[in-house]
Simulated assay, not measured.
Amino acid sequence: MRTALVTGGTRGIGAAIAMALKDAGYRVAANYAGNEEAAARFTEDTGIATHRWSIADYDECARGVAAVEAELGPVDILINNAGITRDVMFHKMTPQDWRAVVDVNLNGVFNMTHQVFAGMRERKFGRIVSISSINGQKGQMGQVNYSAAKAGEIGFTKALAQEGARFGVTVNAICPGYIATDMVMAVPEAVREKIVAQIPVGRLGEAAEIARSVLFLASDDAGFVTGSTMTVNGGQYIV
């Protein structure tokens, strides 16, 4: 049985991924940043262990991964899902707005992947999947920081895939479009209607649809898929 670790794994897309991996027979741990109540509820509902640390802090990542591996064994599958937004037009963006998003969304991918990549190489198996974004592909007004970080995840994926390939370690990215998470559903209905109008399939995506994409990339069946960017956005942006 393989071990999977999902960052930002107690809510939204991350929770759906963690639950899908558990249902598929993996040992699963979920990382979270600060919402103790949500994490406790998630563990109670799913039985999936949760671990709190900031993925923006390299040393915290080292300690957190060590704790997961002591409990469940070496991490075979890493899902870099955690992310934040600090949306503001660029001329009003502060250095703090920029750094906060880049530190979590891009540096966090380095911080987490660096803890597990060497072990995956040694064991000749690994799956690294980073959850990027449609806005990392096409850009989005008011999200220069977020779009830059998410585009960086795609570049990270393409480069690291080349280093891991001959060791059985695949590295891929998924770019979701607009998904019906709590955050999106909290947007005023009129705004959601404008978003849906831009999606050819005529609806928001479901977190479970992203989770099913992760399951494929994490599987043995996906051993020939690496360095790829899977676009899951209902046709809103076609690459």
Score class of each variant (00 low, 15 high):
residue 2 R to M: 13
residue 4 A to K: 08
residue 5 L to T: 12
residue 10 T to Y: 11
residue 11 R to F: 10
residue 23 D to W: 11
residue 26 Y to Q: 04
residue 27 R to E: 05
residue 28 V to H: 03
residue 31 N to L: 09
residue 31 N to E: 03
residue 32 Y to G: 02
residue 32 Y to C: 00
residue 33 A to G: 14
residue 33 A to V: 10
residue 35 N to Q: 06
residue 35 N to A: 04
residue 35 N to H: 06
residue 36 E to L: 02
residue 37 E to Y: 01
residue 37 E to L: 11
residue 43 T to I: 09
residue 46 T to G: 03
residue 46 T to L: 01
residue 46 T to W: 04
residue 49 A to V: 07
residue 50 T to I: 00
residue 52 R to G: 09
residue 54 S to K: 13
residue 54 S to V: 12
residue 57 D to T: 14
residue 57 D to C: 14
residue 59 D to A: 12
residue 59 D to P: 00
residue 63 R to T: 15
residue 65 V to E: 09
residue 66 A to Y: 12
residue 70 A to D: 14
residue 71 E to F: 09
residue 75 V to L: 13
residue 79 I to S: 05
residue 81 N to Q: 03
residue 82 A to F: 01
residue 83 G to Y: 01
residue 86 R to N: 12
residue 88 V to P: 00
residue 92 K to Q: 08
residue 94 T to S: 15
residue 95 P to F: 09
residue 95 P to W: 07
residue 96 Q to F: 12
residue 99 R to T: 11
residue 100 A to N: 04
residue 100 A to Y: 03
residue 101 V to N: 04
residue 103 D to H: 12
residue 112 M to N: 02
residue 117 F to M: 08
residue 119 G to W: 07
residue 120 M to G: 11
residue 125 F to I: 11
residue 126 G to A: 01
residue 127 R to A: 09
residue 130 S to K: 09
residue 130 S to L: 05
residue 135 N to K: 09
residue 136 G to Q: 00
residue 136 G to L: 01
residue 137 Q to A: 01
residue 140 Q to V: 05
residue 140 Q to Y: 03
residue 142 G to E: 00
residue 142 G to Q: 06
residue 143 Q to N: 03
residue 147 S to H: 04
residue 148 A to W: 05
residue 150 K to E: 03
residue 151 A to Q: 07
residue 151 A to E: 02
residue 154 I to Y: 03
residue 154 I to M: 02
residue 156 F to S: 09
residue 158 K to G: 02
residue 159 A to C: 09
residue 162 Q to D: 00
residue 165 A to T: 02
residue 167 F to Q: 02
residue 173 A to Q: 07
residue 177 G to S: 13
residue 178 Y to C: 08
residue 182 D to S: 14
residue 183 M to A: 12
residue 184 V to D: 09
residue 185 M to Q: 15
residue 186 A to I: 13
residue 191 V to W: 03
residue 193 E to K: 14
residue 196 V to K: 04
residue 198 Q to N: 14
residue 199 I to K: 01
residue 201 V to H: 15
residue 202 G to D: 13
residue 202 G to E: 11
residue 203 R to L: 11
residue 203 R to T: 14
residue 208 A to L: 01
residue 208 A to S: 00
residue 209 E to F: 08
residue 212 R to C: 07
residue 213 S to Q: 02
residue 222 A to W: 11
residue 223 G to I: 10
residue 223 G to K: 14
residue 223 G to N: 14
residue 224 F to V: 14
residue 224 F to W: 15
residue 225 V to H: 06
residue 226 T to F: 06
residue 226 T to H: 05
residue 227 G to I: 02
residue 228 S to L: 08
residue 229 T to S: 11
residue 230 M to Q: 03
residue 235 G to P: 06
